[in-house]
Write a protein that binds this DNA or RNA. Structure first.
Lengths: 123, 123
DNA sequence: CTAACGTACAACAAGATGGTTGTAATAGAG
DNA sequence: CTCTATTACAACCATCTTGTTGTACGTTAG
């Protein structure tokens, strides 16, 4: 299974879209079952237009897809971008783990003590 | 290893914090190596105060932690919240997979055809 | 055809966001 | 002590966000 990394642009859109609990709830619901925008809107204490906007934000991030069925727009969740976002976070974690390994190496390896006195700094 | 789920409040903060590429870059850098706020600031084409605000947003989401060293504030990344956010997305994916399984069951199981004629709708 | 439903979109208001500059406090260097 | 580096924070501004209401448009039901 090939998972393509998110670029900065996509990551901006995806994480922004997920940074709202109403939108996260919409994603969860439409991942479980396809729903029209009206059906979704009935589930929240806000206007239809507001829910419509939330769906639009999710659509821009490609977290959901709309498909027309008669006069309804059926919304369903697309798991691909969610998977990519998750992998991006896993990458962060991997970076951290490499650092932990590096520190462990420094602590374990007592013979090569060069470059230990002057730890390099960024900036 | 016990991973506690993010509540709505935390997820709001974490995903919002990650929805900015400068902040994602800061997270990546301080996961790899601890850096003072000044050292971080030198890496971006914006004022020190702007970077300071970004760090504050990350701190509020508990994605980074600050520790004083003399007159410097050393920033380092905390992988815990990243892990939790990743797990939350994995949960979304699992929801989707359960739905896929459910559909597969419906297609495969031709004997129990009850409740198929009236698919339940939300709303 | 007509009425109702579902959707799209524009305009608006309040608040949040992301940048700026300026000022002050604090700690280390000399 | 004095000077400088680092940080903290307030005030300000432009833009974005997130809700609202109102209007228009296409589709289905009767």
């Amino acid at each position: 299974m090939v998972v393509i990394e998110l670029d900065d642009e996509q990551a901006d859109l995806v994480f922004h879209a997920l940074a709202d609990r109403t939108r996260r709830d919409i994603v969860k619901r439409v991942l479980r079952q396809e729903l029209s925008v009206s059906q979704l809107a009935r589930g929240y204490d806000m206007s239809f237009a507001a829910v419509q906007k939330h769906v639009a934000v999710l659509e821009r991030a490609a977290l959901v897809v709309k498909r027309r069925r008669g006069r309804e727009q059926i919304v369903h969740g697309d798991v691909d971008l969610i998977r990519r976002a998750s992998r991006l976070l896993d990458e962060y974690e991997a970076t951290w783990r490499r650092r932990a390994d590096r520190i462990a190496d420094l602590l374990a390896d007592t013979s090569t003590t060069k470059n230990v006195t002057t730890p390099r700094r960024e900036g």
